[in-house]
């Protein structure tokens, strides 16, 4: 049964001064069943983040519909938790208060929300940093806090917008494995936007490839690699190597070889 349905999405921007129309998203449809981890990749500027913003309710589409569990999406809400590339942690709140924020907004009592927030902080491995302010944390730790904040409200689906693009390469690998570990425990449905092919293949059950603007769904590829996955043996995994090569070809990166 499909859980998230994106149906014939279309987005046209109109320049207020020149009245020129730019078609960002031409026609994008896909569905995600419950519990699946799906990545959305595509060349830069193809509108993958716009798709995510429409699903999140931040941007209203000029055409098409988004349904979550059969209910049309209208505006942002806690049923769709968003993890941002720039973390979007409240600088004036401690890690604990940031993680508890969603619960507070939804009227959960203080003791209960602190307990839940603490549980999430432990889950993402930030124990001991509860009282720190975001600017006192490294990029990787900030993103862990942002993930914890979303998990705390138990969303039906998690929307992740290039969440590891602002952290360094080593931390990125660690975080990718960490997110998979947490995801394995809870099996929340995930829509994951990235421009990194390796990341998409490593993390996902399915990879949806968008074409250049005006974008359409170019391919929808299932990743049959067994879980739990780890970077240590990924580059020798035949599925990984072949799917990676196939995707690189689609994105126009010809002659791409597997990095050592």
């Amino acid at each position: 049964m499909s859980f998230l349905t994106v149906d014939r999405l279309n987005q046209v921007y109109t320049d207020v001064y020149t009245n020129e129309h730019t078609v960002a998203i031409d026609d994008v449809s896909f569905t995600i069943p419950a519990g699946e981890f799906v990545s959305l990749i595509g060349p830069s500027g193809c509108g993958k983040t716009t798709v995510l913003n429409i699903v999140a309710g931040f941007v209203e589409a000029t055409g098409g519909a988004v349904q979550l569990e059969g209910v049309p999406v209208a505006g942002p809400g806690p049923d769709r938790g968003v993890v941002f590339q720039d973390f979007a942690l409240f600088p004036w709140k401690t890690v604990l208060a940031n993680v508890a924020f969603g619960l507070k907004m939804n009227g959960v009592g203080k003791a209960e929300r602190q307990a839940t927030a603490q549980e999430m902080i432990d889950l993402v491995g930030l124990s001991g940093f509860e009282r720190k302010f975001p600017h006192e944390l490294s990029g990787g730790m900030r993103q862990r806090a942002a993930v914890a904040r979303v998990l705390a409200t138990e969303p039906s689906i998690m929307l992740m917008d290039e969440p590891f693009a602002s952290v360094d390469a080593q931390t990125r690998r660690v975080l990718q494995q960490e997110v998979l570990r947490i995801w394995d425990l809870r099996r929340t449905t995930v829509l994951f936007v990235t421009h990194d092919v390796d990341e998409a293949v490593f993390m996902s059950d399915r990879v949806i490839v968008l074409s250049t603007r005006p974008s359409q769904v170019q391919a929808d590829i299932r990743i049959p690699i067994e879980r739990p996955r780890s970077w240590t043996d990924m580059h020798t995994n035949e599925d990984f190597v072949s799917i990676r090569r196939e995707l690189m070809g689609m994105l126009g990166v010809e002659g791409a070889e597997v990095a050592p």
Partner: peptide
């Protein structure tokens, strides 16, 4: 105030008053 902070707050269910 960064747009994403406002988006984060509203997506976590903050009312106008909150």
């Amino acid at each position: 105030i960064p747009t994403n902070l406002l988006r984060a707050a509203s997506s976590l269910g903050a009312s106008r008053w909150r």
